[in-house]
Design a protein around this nucleic acid. Structure first.
Lengths: 240, 240
DNA sequence: GCTCTTTGGTCCGGACTTGGACCATTACGT
DNA sequence: ACGTAATGGTCCAAGTCCGGACCAAAGAGC
């Protein structure tokens, strides 16, 4: 990065407007599936509803779903009770690991994540959570522990992080965490699946969740920071 | 906000794809001007270059600029040496203050800002800054102190915050801070311009900048948190 | 079984966006 | 003074997106 002399506000601020609706939609849905927002067997909302929620014409959404179908991520049946169902078992990580691409982007995402995820944990701990929300958080944590195969563990991990972000109650923060996770997804799948790594990760997750449940905001943030730093250390070794 | 039972990941994650390129471009340029990225008299980059940087066709960019021209934010001259220059003196705040709209969005932005701005300050302090960057930071701080009229002070304040974000070196974080500032812009303009408010704000700014310059990351973050909290307290009174 | 409802599938005209080529105006350099 | 370069202004054909109407399949309820 030649960022040494970045003292030009316009150049730093003006950004590309996102791509066309079709690609954006495909990317968003694919990301949601890869992050475990929808898991294998889950049904997507009806096209009309989903199109409206994503702010896109049904035609465009349909094209996006067709792309997912071509990629083998979903299947579709029509008629009442039909719909589009996710058919995606998370691949076993550790294979190939060609995640060396675009190191700068990855480092950016690591920095970003280190800011927004602890922030989300802090906010979530600061709020009063409802019983449903507490139960959801506990369940999300348990699922990371119970996941047996590495792929399932990866998805459960994403789900837990997204759940914490959601409990922050800040849509902007939720989106930020989602983007960080999406950017790192490829890389996170390449973490060596060693027993010690998973154990440490789980300990850190539990510390974060405990702190959130007891309303210890600063503790939750610190715990999440340690978790991000630990992950970061593992990941930086995988980048160029 | 009926966020009490937010335990539905798909509903929380799937977001609207941004609007059409034209509106997005207008909004982005108008925001840049209102945040002081371009100040009165500044010249925008040539259309061809700007269009490419914003990832949009020149036609669309031209339509956007035409909208800004209709709004009186810029004027355009053609021929060599011509171009589009900003003609926008920040309005004197405190008038009307009809900023009560969309309280939930504002509270979201306040929460988001309280996370990303301290994070940016922390990151900026963690990096080794070049001489140019240090000088830029100092100059940005000085401009907030020297600004006499309230509108100019508002712009200088935005510029300082955006400068800190830029010095974090993380594009994702820069964008996050920009979005937070943009969302709050309307509200920030409504802060009562009292001598004590400005004095406190300036003291906090100086604390942040000093910490960044000395590489005291945690101190920079804490100082920025205090600044955000102080601003937040002022602003929450203005929302419904 | 029949009908209704839900859901995906298809099609179309209008609007927007793109990428490119070309025109018009102005200042700079020689 | 002249030519050249830089910059905004105009236009067009192709592609994409929208929004809405309508069709087709398949289960739900009577």
């Amino acid at each position: 990065m030649t960022a040494e002399g970045a003292t030009d506000l316009p150049h730093a601020i003006l950004r590309h407007t996102v791509g066309n609706p079709f690609e954006t939609t495909v990317e968003q849905l694919a990301t949601a599936i890869r992050l475990g927002v929808f898991v294998d067997g889950d049904q997507l909302p009806p096209e009309r509803e989903l199109a409206e929620r994503m702010g896109v014409a049904r035609n465009t959404l349909r094209d996006a779903i067709a792309a997912l179908r071509d990629a083998g991520l979903v299947t579709t049946r029509r008629g009442r009770g039909g719909g589009t169902v996710v058919t995606y078992a998370a691949p076993t990580p550790g294979s190939g690991a060609p995640a060396v691409r675009r190191g700068a982007t990855m480092l950016d995402a690591l920095d970003f994540r280190r800011v927004v995820e602890p922030g989300a944990a802090w906010l979530a701990a600061s709020r009063g959570l409802s019983g449903d929300q507490r139960a959801w958080l506990v369940a999300s944590l348990r699922e990371t522990a119970e996941a047996d195969d590495p792929g399932a563990h990866r998805l459960a991990d994403s789900r837990l992080h997204l759940a914490i972000a959601t409990l922050s109650g800040s849509p902007m923060l939720i989106e930020a965490v989602t983007r960080a996770q999406a950017a790192l997804g490829e890389l996170l799948s390449a973490i060596p699946v060693l027993r010690t790594n998973i154990q440490h990760s789980h300990d850190q997750h539990r510390a974060v969740v405990d702190a959130i449940l007891t309303g210890a905001a600063d503790e939750a943030r610190t715990a999440m920071e340690e978790h991000c730093d630990a992950t970061s250390a593992l990941l930086r070794g995988l980048i160029g």
